[in-house]
Every structure is written in C-alpha cells, then in structure tokens.
Nucleic acid binder design. Structure first.
Lengths: 108, 108
DNA sequence: ACAATCAATAACCATATGGTTATTGTTTGT
DNA sequence: ACAAACAATAACCATATGGTTATTGATTGT
C-alpha cells in the first residue's frame, strides 16, 4: 500500500528522536551525520536510518562533501501538515490568534 | 519511557485510518462507533482501538448513551501541533500566506 | 423473557519500527 | 602507503503496531 505524502510527513515527525533531529537541523542549520549523532543520543546507523525516513518525507536534503554528508532541513515539506491543519484544525480559534501574531511580526 | 503530549498527537495522526476517523468526526460531528466502523473500512474492534489512541492524545471525547458510545473531535488538542509548527515551521514563508488568508476570512 | 445490537476486551498474528553491533566503501591526514 | 574517520548498509533483535476473529457485558426492542 503506497503512502500518501501527508502520511510520510506525519509519520516522520511522530518519532521523538527523529523529530529532535529535524528540530536540531532547523535551529542549527546544516549538520553532518557525525554532529547529529553526537546530538541525538543514539548510534550513527540509527541516525542514518532516521535521516532516510526524513528524506523520504522530503523534510531534509543532503549534500555529499568528501567523506562527510551534510544534511539540512527542508521546512517546505511541512506544508502538507499546515494544509491539513488549515482544513481540519482551523475551526477552532485561540491558538491561531497567537500564530497570527507571528505572522504580523514576520511582516516587519 | 513516558511519551510527551506532543508525541501522542503526532503519533495518533500518523496512521491514515486513524486520521481518517478524526477527519470524519471533524466534518460530520459526533458519531457512534457503529457509524465510524461503516465509514472506516476496518472492523469494529479496530475502530475501538483507534479511538482509544485518539482519546489518549485528547483528540476525541466520548459520551455513553445506552448501549452506544458517541465520539466527537476535540480539535483543541491540535494546539500542540500548531505550537510546534509555529516554533519550527514558521521560518518558512509561502504556505503561511495562504493560512493568513484563512485567518482574514475568519475575521468577517 | 429473550433475541438482537452495540462497543469494549481478549487472544492472536504478521509486519513494521527503532534500536543495536559488525562490516564495507570512501575519503582524508600523515 | 596506510591508518583513521565518516556514513551507509547488513544482519539481527525485541517490541510496537494495526489488523483479525471470538467473546463478553450491557442495553434495547418485541
């Protein structure tokens, strides 16, 4: 059974270790697998597998540079999630007000 | 290892069948397990288990009425996801513009 | 009273998942 | 040339997951 892209994104971010890796890439920018392994608290192969899952969801992109591989976040893939929330979550107010503030700050 | 509430929400919505049940509850409002089973395309026990997972994430609430149980969506639990997106997804523009449109329409 | 309906639980199963250690293939520094 | 470093892959393992059928408990209609 082929998975819809939305499901790929949701599933990829469902695991806390994997979400942590993605968050780290957002915060710190491009990182090598080595650096991410130091951060993640699991083995290097585990990190590589997580990165594969994130890559399948298009949440990360990689760039080879000699013996090291640099990964960076591609937050555009979060679009699927934002769209879904707009469709199914926007009925409910409040939290979106705070999001609106963020948007206003972004206008500056 | 205890799971953070954010992880509960992400995990609950990662499964397509479960997400479908939640979407149905958002769209159609309160439903009995029976009605959801007709919709979901899996067995009644499977639906019950999915509802348990959604309940753990506080995405649904239930109300007993005689022999039937009525479930309804609690979209407030999506707040965890919106917050997370604001923190890690808001760096990136475009899709948020469309979300902004939604917010503007909601002003009316 | 009793058959039927509804929903939860139990018991089970196959597969997916998240982790490990070991290995391999490159690339790099000396 | 060669040892070390980096990252991917292989092989493996325990447990979680998503499904099933069977059963149970409660409620309802006749």
């Amino acid at each position: 059974m082929r998975q819809a892209p939305t499901t790929h994104v949701f599933r990829a971010l469902a695991d806390p270790t994997r979400r942590g890796i993605f968050e780290e890439l957002i915060r710190q920018g491009e990182q090598t697998v080595h650096a991410l392994t130091r951060y993640a608290g699991v083995s290097q192969p585990a990190v590589s597998k997580h990165l594969t899952v994130l890559k399948r969801a298009k949440l990360v992109r990689h760039r080879r540079e000699g013996r090291e591989t640099h990964y960076c976040a591609q937050p555009a893939a979060l679009g699927a999630m934002v769209d879904w929330l707009r469709d199914y979550g926007a009925f409910w107010r409040e939290r979106f007000d705070r999001l609106e503030e963020v948007l206003e700050r972004m206008e500056e």
